[in-house]
């Protein structure tokens, strides 16, 4: 029997949709800052918490957040996982540590890579700093921060991590 006589059991339907995405407002301002090697956040006028990256609003209070705040590129690991499984769209050597990092002066953790130490050595409370890509490679993306690495500061006791412990 030739192959084309077999029953058709499935079809392949290629789909392609093209969108033009534009960063707007706070997002655009954040991208501008990071393309200059700076991190900027926004403070909620109601609960006074600081968000970085900012979204122009405080999700807790449902109000606009016009006040800008400079954010440090150092922070504390609030929790983490060690990724040991490959996945589409992500090109990193396994295993690697993805951590929730509370940047100093910000009140909401971001997710970022921890490198320059074995993944197993990462701890909750560990102090870390951003390692930036070479300046000539900077663009409007969080990827300017290639990863975070441990710094020689004592761990933050969990009881001082407040809500994030």
């Amino acid at each position: 029997m030739s192959e084309e006589k077999s029953e058709v059991k499935a079809i392949v339907t290629p789909t392609k949709l093209v969108y033009q995405f534009s960063a707007i407002g706070s997002h655009a301002e954040f991208l501008k800052a990071i393309s200059e090697g700076k991190l900027v956040g926004e403070r909620c006028p109601s609960c006074k918490k600081v968000y970085c990256p900012p979204r122009g609003i405080c999700p807790r209070c449902g109000v606009e957040t016009p006040e800008k705040v400079d954010i440090d590129d150092k922070g504390t690991v609030t929790t983490y996982c060690i990724v040991r499984v490959p996945s589409e769209n992500i090109d990193l050597k396994l295993p690697y540590c993805a951590a929730n990092i509370l940047l100093d002066r910000s009140d909401m953790p971001i997710m970022a890579l921890i490198q320059e130490c074995p993944a197993e050595d990462v701890r909750i409370g560990m102090r870390v700093e951003a390692i930036w890509a070479p300046e000539e490679d900077w663009g409007p993306t969080m990827e300017n921060i290639r990863y975070f690495r441990p710094i020689d500061e004592p761990d933050v006791p969990t009881e001082e991590m407040g809500d994030w412990y």
């Binding site: 983490y80 996945s87 589409e88 997710m111 993306t141 969080m142 412990y165």
Partner: peptide
């Protein structure tokens, strides 16, 4: 895991998101 422009991709799928929360719970 579809990444919008200017976004960063670090962890994939639900496992990467929820594993750190599980670690928090264990602790």
């Amino acid at each position: 895991t579809i990444r919008m422009p200017f976004q960063q991709g670090i962890v994939a799928g639900a496992g990467g998101f929820f594993a750190p929360l599980i670690r928090s719970y264990m602790r």
